[in-house]
């Protein structure tokens, strides 16, 4: 069962939002790079970056939403999420990407590429607790 989308995007995706990396450095959301996420996860100790490949993008019964199926990590765990079409994901080698980049840019001023099947997104998992 996909997770339900919230009705609004969180404020930190707005262009110009200040993001604090794990080493304390501050960056604007639009300036983040894949390395920032990888290094921050390394420093955090309890979080691990996984590669999540987009397997399917389907329309949803919820207006302005899509259901995205990901294959996550080395175990290829299948995960479905329902998000608004403008919700941005960070894609390796491409940066911020959404199913409707025009709408993302309109609403958030965040420059976006189109999210497509085969794209590899950054996602998080908790490291196993001992």
């Amino acid at each position: 069962t996909p997770l339900s989308p919230s009705s609004a995007l969180p404020p930190y995706f707005m262009k110009g939002s200040i993001i604090q990396l794990a080493d304390g450095e501050l960056k604007r959301v639009e300036d983040l790079r894949a390395e920032d996420f990888l290094q921050s996860a390394d420093l955090s100790g309890e979080l691990k970056i996984d590669s999540s490949t987009v397997e399917r993008i389907d329309s949803s019964r919820t207006p302005d939403a899509v259901i995205i199926q990901f294959s996550v990590g080395e175990h290829k765990t299948q995960v479905c999420v329902e998000v608004l079409v403008e919700y941005p994901f960070f894609v390796f080698g491409q940066g911020w990407s959404s199913c409707c980049p025009h709408r993302t840019t309109q609403l958030l001023a965040l420059s976006c590429a189109r999210l497509s099947v085969g794209d590899v997104c950054i996602s998080l998992t908790l490291k196993s607790l001992r």
Binding site: I18, I19, D36, I49, D50, F70, L124, T125, L126, S128
Partner: peptide
């Protein structure tokens, strides 16, 4: 007098979705 407005700072991990359940070994 204009009060200075504090700029919100968001932690990096709020931008990344948790997509996978924790694997139990």
């Amino acid at each position: 007098n204009v009060e200075p407005r504090s700029v919100p700072v968001f932690p990096w991990h709020s931008l990344v979705p948790f997509l996978a359940p924790t694997q139990s070994d």
